[in-house]
Lab assay of single mutants.
Amino acid sequence: MQIFVKTATGKTITLEVEPSDTIENVKAKIQDKEGIPPDQQRLAFAGKQLEDGRTLSDYNIQKESTLHLALR
């Protein structure tokens, strides 16, 4: 499925993911596309910060959802 990640600079990244993917996997995909190390990424959805060990389906993130990326 496709999801979107909006960066602090307003850029939107499109990612191909599975509901079973962990947040860690998603951060690795962002690193592949943007070169941002996962340990510098903070992802949020619906106002909640997402934890590495959880999956997209844990957070009820569905196709075409938009996550927000902040850098630490």
Score class of each variant (00 low, 15 high):
1 M>T: 04
1 M>S: 03
2 Q>P: 15
2 Q>V: 15
2 Q>A: 10
3 I>G: 00
3 I>M: 05
3 I>P: 00
4 F>A: 08
4 F>Q: 11
4 F>I: 08
4 F>V: 06
5 V>Y: 02
5 V>A: 04
5 V>W: 01
5 V>M: 03
6 K>Q: 14
6 K>C: 03
6 K>E: 12
6 K>I: 15
6 K>H: 08
6 K>L: 13
7 T>K: 09
7 T>Y: 10
7 T>M: 04
8 A>Y: 07
8 A>E: 08
8 A>D: 12
9 T>G: 06
9 T>S: 09
9 T>C: 04
10 G>N: 13
10 G>R: 02
10 G>A: 10
11 K>I: 13
11 K>S: 13
12 T>L: 12
12 T>D: 07
12 T>M: 14
13 I>A: 02
13 I>T: 05
13 I>G: 01
13 I>S: 02
13 I>K: 02
13 I>L: 11
14 T>S: 08
14 T>N: 09
14 T>H: 15
14 T>V: 15
15 L>F: 07
15 L>S: 00
15 L>K: 00
15 L>G: 00
15 L>P: 00
16 E>H: 15
16 E>K: 15
16 E>N: 12
16 E>L: 13
16 E>G: 08
16 E>Q: 12
17 V>L: 11
17 V>K: 00
17 V>S: 04
17 V>Q: 02
18 E>S: 06
18 E>Y: 12
18 E>W: 10
18 E>K: 12
18 E>L: 15
19 P>G: 09
19 P>C: 03
19 P>V: 11
20 S>C: 04
20 S>W: 11
20 S>R: 11
21 D>A: 12
21 D>P: 01
22 T>G: 04
22 T>Q: 10
23 I>G: 02
23 I>N: 01
23 I>Q: 02
23 I>H: 02
23 I>A: 03
24 E>Y: 08
24 E>A: 06
24 E>I: 07
24 E>Q: 10
24 E>P: 04
25 N>Q: 11
25 N>W: 08
25 N>V: 11
25 N>L: 15
25 N>T: 14
25 N>G: 09
26 V>A: 02
26 V>R: 00
26 V>D: 00
26 V>L: 11
27 K>Y: 06
27 K>V: 02
27 K>F: 02
27 K>R: 09
27 K>T: 02
27 K>H: 02
28 A>D: 06
28 A>Y: 14
28 A>I: 10
28 A>M: 12
29 K>M: 07
29 K>Q: 09
29 K>C: 03
29 K>P: 00
29 K>Y: 12
29 K>V: 05
30 I>M: 04
30 I>H: 00
31 Q>G: 10
31 Q>S: 08
31 Q>R: 12
31 Q>A: 15
31 Q>W: 13
32 D>V: 08
32 D>Q: 14
32 D>T: 08
32 D>Y: 14
33 K>V: 14
33 K>C: 03
34 E>C: 03
34 E>N: 08
34 E>R: 04
34 E>D: 07
34 E>I: 09
34 E>L: 15
35 G>L: 05
35 G>C: 03
35 G>S: 12
35 G>D: 15
35 G>K: 09
36 I>H: 14
36 I>D: 03
36 I>G: 02
37 P>D: 15
37 P>I: 07
37 P>R: 14
37 P>H: 09
38 P>V: 13
38 P>S: 10
38 P>W: 13
38 P>I: 08
38 P>C: 03
39 D>M: 08
39 D>E: 08
40 Q>V: 15
40 Q>K: 09
40 Q>S: 13
41 Q>G: 03
41 Q>I: 11
41 Q>C: 03
41 Q>L: 07
41 Q>A: 03
41 Q>Y: 14
41 Q>T: 06
42 R>S: 14
42 R>C: 04
42 R>I: 14
42 R>G: 15
43 L>R: 00
43 L>W: 02
43 L>G: 00
43 L>D: 00
43 L>P: 01
45 F>S: 04
45 F>Y: 10
45 F>P: 00
46 A>Q: 14
46 A>R: 05
47 G>H: 06
47 G>C: 03
47 G>L: 05
48 K>N: 13
48 K>D: 08
49 Q>Y: 03
49 Q>N: 14
49 Q>A: 12
49 Q>V: 13
49 Q>C: 04
50 L>P: 01
50 L>V: 05
51 E>M: 05
51 E>G: 04
51 E>R: 07
51 E>W: 04
51 E>F: 04
52 D>A: 08
53 G>P: 15
53 G>T: 08
53 G>H: 14
53 G>L: 15
54 R>W: 12
54 R>A: 11
54 R>K: 14
55 T>G: 04
55 T>E: 05
55 T>F: 12
55 T>I: 12
55 T>C: 03
56 L>P: 01
56 L>S: 01
56 L>E: 00
56 L>V: 05
57 S>G: 12
58 D>E: 13
58 D>M: 09
58 D>R: 03
58 D>K: 04
59 Y>G: 01
59 Y>R: 01
59 Y>Q: 05
60 N>F: 09
60 N>Y: 09
61 I>Y: 01
61 I>L: 05
61 I>R: 00
61 I>D: 00
61 I>C: 02
62 Q>L: 09
62 Q>G: 05
62 Q>K: 15
62 Q>Y: 14
62 Q>S: 15
62 Q>P: 14
62 Q>T: 10
62 Q>C: 03
62 Q>F: 14
62 Q>N: 13
63 K>A: 10
63 K>W: 10
63 K>V: 09
63 K>H: 06
64 E>I: 04
64 E>D: 07
64 E>F: 09
64 E>W: 15
64 E>Q: 13
65 S>L: 08
65 S>H: 11
65 S>M: 08
65 S>Q: 15
65 S>P: 02
65 S>D: 12
66 T>N: 09
66 T>A: 05
66 T>W: 13
67 L>Y: 01
67 L>C: 02
67 L>W: 02
68 H>F: 14
68 H>W: 12
69 L>S: 02
69 L>Y: 02
69 L>R: 01
69 L>F: 05
69 L>H: 02
70 A>N: 15
70 A>P: 02
70 A>C: 04
70 A>S: 05
71 L>Y: 12
72 R>A: 13
72 R>K: 13
72 R>W: 07
72 R>I: 13
